[in-house]
Design a binder for these strands. Structure first.
Lengths: 200, 200
DNA sequence: CCTACCGATCGGTAGG
DNA sequence: CCTACCGATCGGTAGG
């Protein structure tokens, strides 16, 4: 049937995207410094010098991975927040969206690289990332503020937000898809832990 | 006066400990893979081949850092738990002890290396670490169980413990000693967030 | 994107 | 612990 489809589009402009995806996997697994350009080239069936046709430096590859990871999470959680509902419903939807991006098969290497390898960026790139991260976390701060107004949480301070980010991002360290617990269950348990028991 | 003290003890058996401390700083700052034996040697005023007089491989240095980090935290939190008191008092003391080890000037590089670089260990060393980590986390599981019995928390499941570890360990990412908030305040806020409002 | 290559650096060792 | 060194590997480039 469509046996030739994949090979036909071999020369499309997404060789670059393939490199980024392979790099995310390797950076997440072995770390940025321990990953070799040759590792990345091998993963996408290129010769060792060829990735430099698509990227100027290894740092640029890291930046591409990290920015794509940040953008994907931001987009997902922003969409969840825009869905509307009570502060509690919005918060629950945001928790689920964040965890799905972090733990899903396709996005988790981007997230892991973002969380663990960003400090290898140079100052200018790091500043760009931090800007996006601050905008992202402002979404959460706002959600907490409205939970507070609705009486669902006692403290909506910055420290509360940081504890929340920690609980969420730490899941990367322990979650296993085969682990019995679904992402939905995990999101629900965190909501239950942080928010006051529902009235009625 | 005692001007010669430091140079007199230059040949004591703690050159090894100096190497471990320097390594912890470098591993925490630049990462294990990006840190060079030459970096470590320079930090303790040795020639580039000399650290190998004290350690067989670079991996052995990482293992030494990581095990010392784990042992220090375990000891501190174990001591806090053994102090006794109500479940809530014990829990609060454990929170404070864990955070002090993570964030204090002297121990934070060990903790950061433990949290971020352990995956560079070989399988056997990693297994040794995980064993110690499991024993450590059992301390927390027990503390949660007793909070539950006392009615201070609704859920003492494993997932709750993992959220707690995340909130705690994530502080490494954002805490700054000059940041206004004391470690004690941070511990207190986390306790307030997780536990039911005190009766009375 | 491949071929062929370069200078630099790395972990580790022998021999004292 | 230092001196002197080795083989291997790395990020990156010129020239096609």
């Amino acid at each position: 049937m469509a046996a030739s489809r994949k090979s036909l589009i071999k020369d499309e402009p997404n060789r670059r995207a393939e490199i980024v995806r392979a790099a995310s996997r390797l950076f997440a697994d072995k770390g940025y410094s321990a990953t070799t350009i040759r590792d990345i080239a091998r993963a996408v069936d290129m010769q060792s010098g060829s990735p430099f046709y698509h990227f100027r430096t290894k740092h640029d590859m890291l930046l591409a991975v990290v920015l794509e990871g940040m953008a994907t999470i931001s987009r997902a959680v922003g969409a969840a927040a825009a869905q509307g509902g009570t502060p509690r419903e919005i918060f629950d939807a945001m928790l689920l969206a964040h965890l799905e991006q972090l733990l899903a098969e396709d996005g988790r290497h981007f997230a892991a690289t973002l969380l663990h390898e960003s400090h290898h960026l140079e100052a200018a790139a790091l500043a760009e990332l931090i800007e996006q991260k601050d905008a992202y976390e402002a979404l959460w701060q706002k959600a907490l503020r409205e939970l507070r107004r609705a009486g669902d949480i006692a403290d909506d301070s910055h420290v509360t937000r940081l504890f929340l980010m920690g609980a969420l991002n730490w899941t990367v360290q322990w979650y296993h898809p085969k682990g019995g617990r679904s992402v939905r269950q995990i999101a629900r348990q965190l909501s239950d832990l942080l928010l006051n028991p529902k009235s009625r």
